[in-house]
Simulated assay, not measured.
Amino acid sequence: MFMVRIATSDLEREHAFSVRRKVFVEEQGVPLNLEIDDLDKTATHFVVYSSDTPIGAGRLRMTTDGVGKVERVCILEDFRGKHLGNLVMHALEEHAQETGLTKIVLNAQSYAIPFYEKLGYVVTSPEFMDADIPHRAMEKHILEPS
C-alpha cells in the first residue's frame, strides 16, 4: 500500500532527501549542492511510502507573491509507472489549497511535460537549462477549498 505523508520529523525529511539523492544526484547527475539547498529549510516536504519504505518525494514552497512552487518531485525507478507521481502531486495540491493558495508553479524537466499537462498544468516558458537538464516553467490555477 502506498501513502503520502507530510514530513514532520527530521527522519521523514531525511527520507525525502534520500529519495531525491538517488533520483536526481545518482541517476541524473545533478550536483548534490544544487539538489539539497537552503530552500529545504522552509519548504514543506512530502514523502511517498510503500509500507515504511520511502519511495518518492516532493516539496512545496511558498513564494514571495503567495504562489506555491512545486519542486523536487520524484519516484524511485523501481516504482515508476504505478501512478505514484499523481499521488504526490494530488497531496501537494491539496496542501496548497488548504493553505489558501490559488496557483501553483513548477519547472518541469522537458520529458515530464506530458505528465504535468495531464494534471492540468500549462507551459508558460520556452525551454531553459537547469543543472544541465532542459526544463520549462508550468503553472496551474487551483480552486480554493469549499
Results as ranks from 00 to 15, higher is better:
68 G>L: 09
62 M>R: 13
78 D>A: 09
38 D>S: 10
92 L>N: 01
66 G>K: 11
88 V>D: 05
60 L>C: 00
31 P>I: 07
51 S>Q: 12
48 V>N: 13
95 H>G: 01
51 S>Y: 11
61 R>A: 13
50 S>E: 15
34 L>T: 02
107 N>D: 12
41 K>I: 01
62 M>E: 13
55 I>P: 04
85 G>T: 11
72 R>K: 04
66 G>H: 09
83 H>F: 07
80 R>F: 01
68 G>H: 10
99 T>I: 06
91 A>W: 09
77 E>S: 15
30 V>N: 04
79 F>A: 07
72 R>Y: 03
37 D>F: 14
27 E>Y: 02
37 D>E: 12
36 I>Y: 13
107 N>F: 01
29 G>C: 04
47 V>L: 00
76 L>E: 13
49 Y>Q: 05
93 E>F: 09
85 G>C: 06
56 G>T: 12
73 V>N: 10
38 D>F: 12
107 N>W: 14
81 G>V: 08
96 A>N: 03
87 L>S: 13
24 F>H: 12
68 G>C: 06
44 T>Y: 13
66 G>M: 08
72 R>M: 01
51 S>H: 15
34 L>A: 08
100 G>V: 02
37 D>H: 13
86 N>E: 10
95 H>L: 04
75 I>M: 15
90 H>Y: 10
57 A>G: 08
108 A>D: 01
43 A>H: 00
28 Q>E: 11
34 L>K: 08
66 G>A: 07
58 G>F: 03
56 G>N: 09
63 T>N: 07
28 Q>T: 04
102 T>D: 15
92 L>Q: 04
71 E>R: 04
107 N>G: 11
74 C>D: 11
86 N>S: 14
79 F>P: 04
45 H>G: 07
28 Q>G: 01
80 R>A: 14
83 H>P: 03
49 Y>K: 08
72 R>V: 05
104 I>T: 01
46 F>P: 00
105 V>N: 11
86 N>V: 06
103 K>Q: 11
36 I>G: 05
64 T>E: 06
100 G>N: 05
98 E>R: 06
75 I>T: 14
62 M>I: 02
34 L>Q: 06
97 Q>K: 09
26 E>P: 00
68 G>K: 09
68 G>T: 10
58 G>V: 13
69 K>F: 05
72 R>G: 05
103 K>F: 07
75 I>Y: 13
92 L>T: 08
60 L>A: 02
97 Q>D: 07
64 T>R: 03
31 P>D: 12
100 G>E: 06
68 G>P: 03
82 K>D: 08
26 E>H: 10
95 H>A: 02
83 H>A: 14
55 I>C: 09
53 T>G: 03
106 L>W: 10
39 L>H: 14
70 V>I: 08
69 K>C: 00
27 E>P: 01
79 F>L: 08
33 N>V: 12
97 Q>V: 02
85 G>Q: 13
70 V>Y: 03
102 T>K: 14
98 E>P: 00
